[in-house]
Amino acid sequence: MKILLCEDERDLAESIQSYLKSNDILCEIATDKKSALSKISAFEYDCVLLDLMLPDGHGFDILTELKAQQKSEGIIITSAVETLDSRLEGFQLGADDYLTKPFHLSELLVRIQALVRRKKFKGNNLIDFKEVEIDLNSKSVKVNNSYIDITKKELDLLLFLIGNHNKVLSKSAIAEHLSGDMADMLDNHDFVYAHIKNLKKKLHEAGSNDYIKTVYGLGYKWQND
């Protein structure tokens, strides 16, 4: 998978690049509008991450240009500015998602995956990791070909873990992902532990390998050992 990252903050761009790289996403960086536009017309990408405030112009200009060239890339706006207006305008101009800075890299990764899945594999909404198989349409999970009983939160957690496989996820990142719009209202991340425990138990009982590892002092990780 190849994506274009329009981001003038080089440190942030590099962190995103290195995080995505180990999950098989090739990330090209454009630090200004000019280079972003020339890259867009020269190459095909699966997804474009767009910062709105670029040194030589506004991210919306790139968005307009993409639509004018009838490109099919999925577009995620990553901006520090979040007003109702900027959000609405972004979606109206054809953006697919809006992620306000600051965000967790793990969150960005699953957003990219979800978007590319929607855009590229229409109809095919199956995700599998060895004996674990998730059907996004029916929101069901099969382990070794038999369904397991799973809550919506646990499914969400499972997707987040598998999407970020081999990554250490902090409790705060998991908690925020699971809380969605209410993430800002989180006061305590202990509930993550309960969900992890339940998910682990359900997968284990269905005969799955123990992929969810507790990383001492840091968080959790989906790992194939």
């Binding site: 440190d11 942030l12 180990s22 500015v81 306000t100 967790h104």
Partner: peptide
Amino acid sequence: HELQTPLAVFQAKIDTLFQ
């Protein structure tokens, strides 16, 4: 608003360090 970007860098670096 201006703090959002450095905070994003900060968070991203921590996420990177976690790995």
